[in-house]
Nucleic acid binder design. Structure first.
Length: 588
RNA sequence: GAUCACGUAGCUCAGAUGGAUAGAGCAACUGCCUUCUAAGCAGUGGGUCACAGGUUCAAAUCCUGUCGUGAUCACCA
């Protein structure tokens, strides 16, 4: 965005390699200073450089950019650049010339050909979405929205794990415990299925405990004697053999879950471009595995199971009874995607960090089976767990699990109780909802993905300080300021007028410049908290500014500068909120 | 035990990948609503950046080791 920084870098490298013939790469670091004592911008040199280079750069900058410079001072390894008003005014005018169209400034047509598939959410169809999924969904959604803004061709994809032993558990549970009961219509349908699942787990646990006590054996051996375990395995075989009754019941239960999922997605405003089902893709994987036995990549065991050797360990790919595992469908799904999307640029799997080893294994297999794909195109975007009551949420234990619906409900009631509007307004409900959803999303996204989120309602229900509502209010305030500008006219700022920009104004303008880099960093490190941090600090600066300085002042020149800044900020806030998929409120 | 991640204010977290004086919010205290909307703004107090070495002009940041916390190591997903 700033041409002159780019030019400085270019000059530096030309001097370094052509004039002084350095062989080593020595990077140049350019900083925007927080401490104004040292100027607005500082260039930091390595001590490996000779003073001649620094002096040369000093001279060139001085000559070339006299019009925007106040002074330059060399101090040890630092070159402190003090900029004058012209520099800042030029930046505001740059936005003016581009008609304040932030969206266009970021969009890059050349990226359009690059297809990026982002695989996120990927729930199991045996229980409602919980806060673990929430973190996954929000990270995946934010990252793909940024790619989209930068012009990439994005495919938001979820694969529903709709087959496997966990599903058979709900089926058996229905057969044993719920068949004769009527479905309670007041319970959200995915929660009803969750009930089936947890009931099974409870009974299963009981049985295993009973067996291991009775025969004095450990849990692993108790499995073989378990009646319920036999039942779910039989069900799995029936299902994979396309048993009509099994499939019918399976469809019925799954549809209940999907109905519930869709409601949750709708309220969170999460939309996917494609939804894949493991029940469709696992067969592709199965075929491929069998095919690769001939190539000696996979090995058929004596008991008819098929395995792969990874780090001297046997990894089972197909069970001895012929049924598939998670890895089977993972291979199948990838093959399906390669066929469907041909040459894609990147495939990002948003999956928790507990599956890091699993993905290393998966990528290793993919490399071996030689399916004409560059392994670098696959990326496991991992994030840390969401804990509750100091422990990882275990999706088998009902007491330890917090569902998204539950937080939304609690948050909505809290917002309704604690946010009081001065004036009666019509669409209160919608505003409450927007604050609720925004706050939940913001609280999850503001934490670096590498860190554990220790979820508790006290923190999440906080509405002060670095929260979503702060950003939403900031937008409302700027919006109302801009609305007061009746003609909606903004003016090019001419150089002739003399007005010394305040430090806070300079600060804000520098922050505006950083926006593009922030977006790039966010996807570079796959870390939405970078973006959240930026929007928070930007909001803080603009709040400070507008509360201590009037925008509509008598001096026209001053007023224009301030209005233009406000307009740019409002556009950036709007843009970021769209990326974060957090609702904006224009008026309260 | 092995591998990975994390350890910064009482609590929750930033610190842009090595720069000059360590930053927010919550909680506590003090001001500011007759003003472009106060869930805001301005301010006060609070730190051995887990610990110990090393690398260099410069380390919360890089390297090594120690300690602590969590996760993974299934014919679960």
């Amino acid at each position: 965005m700033i041409k002159f920084l780019k030019v400085i870098k270019k000059i530096y490298y030309i001097l370094l390699y052509k004039k002084y013939k350095f062989k080593k790469k020595i990077r140049l670091k350019i900083l925007f200073n927080n401490i104004k004592k040292y100027g607005d911008i500082t260039i930091i040199f390595s001590n490996l450089l000779k003073k001649n280079i620094i002096n040369d750069i000093y001279k060139i900058i001085y000559k070339k950019y006299k019009n925007i410079l106040l002074k330059i001072i060399i101090k040890n390894y630092f070159l402190n650049i003090y900029l004058n008003n012209n520099f800042y005014i030029k930046i505001i005018n740059y936005f003016f010339k581009k008609k304040f169209n932030i969206k266009k400034l970021i969009y890059n047509k050349n990226n359009n050909k690059k297809k990026i598939i982002i695989d996120y959410s990927s729930p199991n169809s045996n229980k409602p979405l919980h806060i673990g999924h929430l973190r996954n969904i929000l990270i995946g959604d934010t990252i793909s929205n940024i790619y989209k803004k930068l012009g990439y061709n994005i495919i938001k994809s979820q694969i529903i794990n709709d087959r496997g032993i966990h599903i058979c558990k709900t089926i058996i549970s229905w057969k044993l415990f719920f068949k004769k009961k009527k479905i309670n219509k007041y319970i959200k349908s995915d929660h009803y299925v969750g009930k089936l699942y947890f009931k099974f787990e409870k009974e299963f646990k009981k049985e295993i405990k009973y067996i291991s006590n009775k025969y004095n054996i450990d849990k692993k051996n108790a499995l073989n004697k378990s009646n319920l375990f036999k039942k779910i395995n039989k069900e799995l075989i029936r299902w994979e053999n396309n048993n009509k009754r099994s499939i019918k019941l399976w469809k019925k239960i799954n549809n209940l879950v999907y109905k519930g999922f869709n409601k949750t997605y709708k309220i969170l405003n999460i939309k996917f471009n494609e939804t894949l089902y493991e029940s469709n893709t696992y067969i592709i994987g199965k075929k491929n595995i069998i095919k690769n036995i001939k190539k000696n990549i996979f090995i058929l065991d004596k008991d008819k199971s098929i395995y792969y050797i990874y780090k001297n360990k046997k990894i089972i790919l197909l069970r001895k009874n012929g049924t598939s595992l998670y890895i089977t469908q993972e291979i199948g799904t990838l093959l399906y995607r390669i066929k469907k999307y041909k040459k894609f640029y990147l495939l990002i799997y948003v999956v928790g960090n507990e599956q890091k080893n699993y993905f290393n294994l998966f990528f290793n297999i993919i490399e071996k089976i030689n399916i004409n794909i560059n392994i670098n195109k696959l990326y496991h975007l991992s994030y840390n767990t969401v804990n509750y009551l100091g422990k990882k949420i275990k999706s088998r234990n009902y007491k330890n699990i917090i569902f998204i619906d539950c937080i939304i409900k609690k948050m909505y009631n809290y917002v309704k109780k604690n946010i009081i509007f001065n004036i009666n307004i019509k669409n209160k409900k919608k505003i409450y909802k927007n604050i609720t959803i925004g706050t939940i999303k913001y609280q999850f996204l503001k934490i670096n993905p590498n860190k554990i989120i220790n979820f508790n309602f006290k923190n999440t229900l906080n509405l002060k300080g670095n929260t979503c509502i702060y950003i939403q209010y900031t937008y409302i305030r700027i919006y109302s300021i801009l609305k007061k500008n009746i003609n909606n006219k903004y003016y090019f700022i001419k150089k002739k007028n003399k007005y010394n920009l305040k430090n806070i104004e300079k600060d804000i303008i520098i922050y505006i410049i950083k926006y593009y880099k922030i977006l790039k960093d966010t996807i570079k490190y796959y870390d939405p908290s970078i973006l959240i941090n930026y929007i928070y600090l930007l909001s803080k600066k603009i709040n400070n500014f507008y509360q201590n300085n009037r925008i509509y002042v008598k001096n026209k020149y001053e007023k224009n500068i301030r209005l233009n800044i406000c307009l740019i900020i409002s556009k950036i806030l709007y843009n970021i909120m769209k990326i974060l998929n957090i609702p904006i409120i224009k008026k309260i």
